[in-house]
Design a protein around this nucleic acid. Structure first.
Lengths: 146, 146
DNA sequence: ACCAATTCTCTCGCTGAACGAGAGAATAAC
DNA sequence: GTTATTCTCTCGTTCAGCGAGAGAATTGGT
């Protein structure tokens, strides 16, 4: 149960890290979350439209347009019409965005990989199992609270 | 290293949970973070001033005043002059705020305690050790990035 | 004692992210 | 071919947070 507070402390620390990174690169917390989402989708080979992005970030359509405008102005994403359904706009991430993502996660990954040396494979598996369960628990708490 | 993504997924889920909780109670993400900070401080027996709160949340003095105004209007905190240093204002949390905090963490704790049953004491200790290390790693990444 | 420097909090004016409502364009359904 | 649906974007508005600085209280130097 103090694991809850520990988890929360970790989320707070991650948030602060993200917020400072965002501020240093002239973007907002929302922009960074959008970037992460876009990179995740790109890695999974999925195409992202403004609509999907806005839904993932719980944004209004107007707010989504503004967000994409900002990202486009920064040269991080590009809008292209979908030829199969020409109502849609597809968002493609630029190389610049990938680099920016790595410069954010790089130091964090480096620091975390260093700590992982102190754990053997079985222990890491335990941690993974716990985090997976915690993820499901948080999602469940979100479901039941509506 | 995929633990990084897992951790990030957990933080995202926690954030979404917090954001939805906040929206449902008519407060902003910042307000919730402030509430959590105030409750933590109260539990630790520390006194909080607007200045400290603003620093913890990376807020401007003007923004902090606005934040405290909102919380006060909602009846969650009260301002009282410090008699020992009368430049200061002390923030005290109302019972209402404690209840609100519990109604936020309650379901989450419940869901997480349920998952903890699948782990023995040694495994939980491992998880705790890992999260503590991750917390330190994130803090270190934040340090080195400035 | 007094004047300056420091430490808090708050006010004022402003920028900009996000909202609600709705328009515009393309596709799907009948 | 007409209507309904599904996307995206525009317009006007609201409000959190910023920068600058004013207003009180305290501390320190002389």
């Amino acid at each position: 149960m103090d694991l809850v507070h520990l988890l929360r402390a970790v989320t707070v620390e991650f948030d602060l890290l993200g917020a400072e990174f965002a501020a240093r690169h002239g973007l907002h917390p929302t922009d960074l979350r959008a970037l992460v989402h876009l990179l995740d989708a790109a890695r999974a080979g999925e195409t992202v439209t403004p609509g999907r992005l806005g839904a993932a970030l719980r944004l209004n359509s107007a707010g989504t347009t503004g967000l994409v405008d900002r990202l486009e102005r920064l040269g991080l994403v590009a809008r292209t019409r979908d030829d199969r359904d020409r109502r849609r706009v597809l968002l493609t991430v630029d190389e610049k965005a990938v680099g920016l993502g790595w410069s954010f996660f790089g130091p964090l990954i480096g620091a975390l990989v260093g700590t992982a040396d102190d754990f053997d494979a079985a222990e890491l598996a335990t941690v993974r199992r716990y985090l997976t369960a915690a993820l499901a628990a948080a999602a469940a708490a979100r479901e039941s609270a509506d």
